[in-house]
Design a binder for these strands. Structure first.
Lengths: 215, 215
DNA sequence: TTGACATTAAAACAATTGTTTAATACATAT
DNA sequence: ATATGTATTAAACAATTGTTTTAATGTCAA
């Protein structure tokens, strides 16, 4: 079997492999990426993946684990659970969080991109991703939506509204090849991303408040 | 070179290959599907793809062409361009059209699924798909959105609203593996699909009317 | 220094996949 | 009936990819 260091401690090469793999997996998906490209980027030997992580799937799982342990350190979701703030404001914070991490081009930009990809091109690791990363986020959104819709709202309606909101956010990342061809004016720089988050917030707030009025 | 029958006329095997390829491509994507599986399903020899369509990409292009030529025959979009009908009603028709074809489990169910996949896992054929299938649909939606938002709406706002609406629809197909794990209650039978279309219509109508009021 | 152990490196292996070849069957026209 | 061109088949080819093997290198304690 491959080496099982106690935990959390990683050799230099493992670290480089994780970072390189994260980028490539996020950009191309599990199937398309070759371990040879990962190793080339990490300046490691082709056998490094199998030695340190067993096989390609093991590396992928480790990358998700690595992403999870470092998640939320840049965009903490804390403010969204402050029940004292108005729900509309919490919704704006939530949407900004999602949009910003989806379009952050900073160093570990691949994290949320990898999760977004796992959603539409699932692997064996999807169950763990849903349980540990997606479901907690969804529950945050659920409580916000329920607060705006009011106590009269059915579970089904809350669910559909959640999906409407998150669907708007993810569409801008998933459909980017099409959006760029369809709307060349549409850019996703820091300024536009802020406007995008504002739009989705206003769009959804109006929708939720309309539904709350029973329309 | 491979045979270039005049046009439109197809041999029996070509037809079977197109149907089989459409299903598999739509279900698994271009990269994951093997020509061997297509040929097995079509009860054809492994060499059939290369003989009739040149190579795997040629088959894929032919499948898209085939899908395009048979598109809209089941769910015509005609009513959406009747400028006499109220814009809200046209929006409802449009959304129902998109949702129904995305979740139609009938015989040629793979058509819109294939297009949905091409949007998030683009191939060399994406330019043609956008130009011939996606852009016309987007323009329908644009005129509807503009009618509801009013003449004062900016192009950018119209664009963002279009993306919000279509994003809601596509999310339910693209993210289905996650949705099923997150919300096991959520089903997509004929009845639920109708409710889903109604929800997205109401959600979006409320949003657009709110934005039209300047909120 | 020596020995034990973890890591790296080069090469080869085995399986898959898209593609091609060469032979065969079949139809149609001369 | 013969010839011609199309379609199908089985087999093999060539390239890629994940993985394994075997040897070499480095590190650190005894």
């Amino acid at each position: 079997m491959y080496p099982r260091k106690s935990t959390a401690v990683c050799t230099e090469t493992q670290q480089r492999l994780l970072e390189a793999a994260g980028e490539v997996f996020a950009a191309q998906g599990f199937q398309k990426t070759t371990v040879r490209e990962i190793c080339r980027r990490a300046r490691a030997n082709v056998a490094a993946v199998n030695y340190h992580f067993g096989d390609k799937e093991g590396l992928y799982a480790a990358v998700l684990e690595y992403a999870h342990s470092h998640a939320l350190e840049k965009y903490p979701l804390l403010q969204t659970e402050d029940e004292d703030l108005p729900a509309e404001q919490r919704l704006g914070t939530f949407i900004r969080h999602v949009i910003f991490s989806l379009f952050d081009e900073g160093a570990p930009a691949w994290r949320s991109k990898l999760m977004a990809r796992e959603m539409i091109e699932p692997t064996a690791a999807l169950d763990a991703v849903v349980a540990r990363m997606i479901r907690p986020t969804a529950q945050r959104l659920e409580s916000i939506v329920r607060a705006i819709l009011g106590a009269a709202a059915s579970d089904a309606q809350v669910r559909l509204c959640q999906l409407s909101i998150i669907g708007q956010c993810l569409h801008h990342r998933h459909a980017q090849p099409v959006i760029q061809r369809l709307f060349p004016q549409q850019h996703y720089g820091p300024e536009e991303v802020k406007l995008l988050a504002d739009h989705i917030t206003r769009f959804s707030c109006n929708a939720l408040k309309g539904l709350a009025r029973g329309q």
